[in-house]
Design a protein around this nucleic acid. Structure first.
Lengths: 330, 330
DNA sequence: GTGAAAGCGCTAACAT
DNA sequence: ATGTTAGCGCTTTCAC
């Protein structure tokens, strides 16, 4: 592989001049520039990125942590982040944490090993205490997920409102026995969404039945599991608020398999408004998250942070709107 | 940020010794090793990856090119590749080409700029002529997708058989008017699968109706589009072979919307056996691809290639089995 | 406008 | 078993 020196000698110029051409610096005459370009083409030269990164002390790469790559919500979010990053000449490194504390921590260390200039977290597994120390090494921005005590900027949705409008919708449909499913730990996003659920119930003088609370529910299969648990209950909920469209789809599919009618026997409400929501039957009532906008805003916040040298402690919270999409499952 | 020199002076040793500890080299006494470890911990030291990569002339990173990250087939494949890579201490760089020639080429250049040690392609947009030159810079392995003329190893499925068994199944169900949908260009994978379709038809003395061939069909929405086109035809197919479960799901969903019965009015067969196949109603007849195995095998081939210094020209083709999963949509 | 020279942080001969 | 030294490929002062 040719190096910058090879290009320099073929062009009859110094390495400095070649470097100026590579980086589009001014003050290089047209003739020399062409000389360099010709030499580069002739040799099939490409600059060594590791050398550039080492010298420049930056990589123009942002790590994006996602909890589960097979969840379409996150791949759509990643695509949005990626589009925006490309506009600013940044690369994205997709990091699949699999909801694992240790994997997350290892990815966060990418900032310490200088493999990335910043990190966007769309999920949080560790306590903020663990993570905070890493903010010394570069900007971290929270995207969608958040956590109490985090002293970094975040772009998020009003999850309390999301939990509220979903639950309130079910109540308006006449339900009083409403179950609730969520994924990981009840903190940040999940906590607020649950608070919205609780608030909506309380507003109508309803209280929470602990038997109808299901945690660790992430996937289609988890949804099936939940429905099976319910169908064995003596006192069953008549409606379910779920944390994702996939879970809702699993519940609906299993309900039909068992001969239950949706929404007659059990109403279901999803979250995200993924493509699957319109394909399943009955079509899914769900809460639409503005994925594209949240990705775009997050990357803009990151760019802004990258541009200022002094890592000031001030951080902002940007909140985007949610929307209930009423279909047939409720 | 502390460097290796800082660690060395704090430990009262040379940089070389610190480096030996970092890389788990033998011939370092326990006492010195502990001295170094303590110093590293005390300083919060992490080695600079760019410097290591530059010096070692490798990155222990493999680029994985996928055409569409939002297609669950590819995220599942990526997860499988990732699992295997982790076992060998390799990182994965996920590259979303979006079916774009230029983006693909830019990702292939990662090999020239030394950002990755090898590339796994799960889709191919450019002609092999464009790509071949890049194989000089490191190993390229084809995964699932393939293309005629490629002189690199590949792990794939017998797509001709896939096309054949799917079509034959429809014929056995009594269909003679069978349409066909596919995504990108008809080369490699798509070509063979189409050949299987053609062969199955020919075996029964049936010929292809050009009006029932749909190209550029990738997503749920594309599937809806296909069904709408069909419903306006005078002479309609009674069955459709599709290139993915998503497309099939779109067709089924739209058919039901239009009051058509599946499989009565139109039978549909998918490809992949994604989770959506069991959630949609009627459940989807589809061709299961052994995603996990194909990912695993591909990474093993890559590891093997990475370990041998001389890039020999010999290349192998590994073929894995496909399986028809008959459900209710056919 | 261009070149000389220093150095980013690390590893691997080689020497001891 | 440890240290010295050279250099991976590049960018950026500082000269001129």
């Amino acid at each position: 592989m040719p190096t910058i020196s090879d290009v320099a000698s073929l062009a009859g110029l110094s390495r400095a001049t070649v470097s100026r051409v590579i980086n589009n610096h001014p003050y290089v005459t047209k003739e020399k520039k062409e000389l360099v370009m010709d030499a580069m083409k002739q040799l099939g030269y490409f600059p060594n990125t590791s050398a550039q990164n080492l010298r420049k002390q930056k990589t123009d790469t942002i790590a994006v942590l996602v909890p589960r790559l097979t969840n379409p919500f996150f791949t759509h979010l990643v695509e949005s982040l990626e589009d925006r990053a490309a506009e600013y000449g940044l690369q994205i490194l997709i990091c699949n944490t699999k909801y694992d504390k240790k994997r997350e921590l290892e990815f966060l260390y990418l900032l310490k090993t200088k493999q990335v200039d910043g990190i966007i977290m769309t999920s949080i597994e560790n306590n903020w205490g663990q993570i905070e120390e890493i903010t010394m090494n570069g900007p971290i921005v929270l995207c969608n997920e958040y956590i109490t005590g985090a002293n970094v900027s975040s772009v998020r949705l009003n999850q309390l409102e999301g939990g509220y409008i979903g639950t309130h919708h079910l109540i308006q449909k006449g339900h009083t026995k409403i179950g609730y499913c969520w994924g990981g730990v009840l903190s940040g996003l999940s906590y607020d969404r649950f608070e919205g659920y609780r608030k909506a119930l309380a507003g109508q003088g309803l209280s929470i039945n602990e038997n109808w609370l299901f945690e660790g529910v992430f996937s289609i299969d988890d949804g099936r599991r939940v429905l099976n648990e319910i169908s064995e209950m003596y006192d069953r909920p008549t409606a379910l608020f779920t944390g994702s469209d996939e879970v809702a789809a699993g519940i609906i599919s299993e309900a039909k398999k068992k001969g239950l009618h949706v929404p007659g026997d059990i109403a279901v409400i999803g979250f995200d408004d993924q493509p699957i929501a319109e394909v399943i039957e009955p079509a899914l009532t769900t809460i639409r998250q503005p994925i594209s906008e949240i990705g775009k805003k997050t990357m803009e916040v990151m760019i802004e942070l990258l541009s200022k040298k002094n890592q000031s402690d001030e951080h902002q919270i940007y909140e985007l709107p949610l929307q209930l999409i009423a279909r047939e499952s409720s």
